[in-house]
Amino acid sequence: MVRESSIMKIHYYTGLAAIVLVAIHILFRLTVPEGYSASLEYENVIANYKNISYSLVLELILVTVAIHGFNGLRVILLELRQGDGWESAVKWLCIAGAVAVIVYGTRTILLASMMG
């Protein structure tokens, strides 16, 4: 069994990492010379995905925020109701949710970075 303190340490560190990573992500919206809406244009976004280091940042956001967010949900659901059945259901639901989001987002990152 994983110690609760190990899980909650991960919760702290993913939260702290998210500050830096999401800040980079938002800066990519604001630093395009033609302005914010240009940053969302198809060609620019594809170029972003083709930038290896930036797509690595996107992947890191995906993983850290998914873990942090679904663990936060787990915490709330554990406090909401108790019982062995409920608690194990909550655990698996949150693991499945995080894995699903990470897999689906990684698929986008991989496919978009290979698009011509």
């Binding site: 936060g72 709330i76 496919l111």
Partner: peptide
């Protein structure tokens, strides 16, 4: 926290449109 989680999930779905080409995006 819950609001951001909801946005995050929607956002990953939203950005996945990029793989279906310029029109979908």
């Amino acid at each position: 926290g819950l609001g951001l989680l909801a946005y995050f999930i929607a956002h990953v779905i939203e950005t996945s449109n990029i793989v279906y080409g310029k029109n979908a995006w």
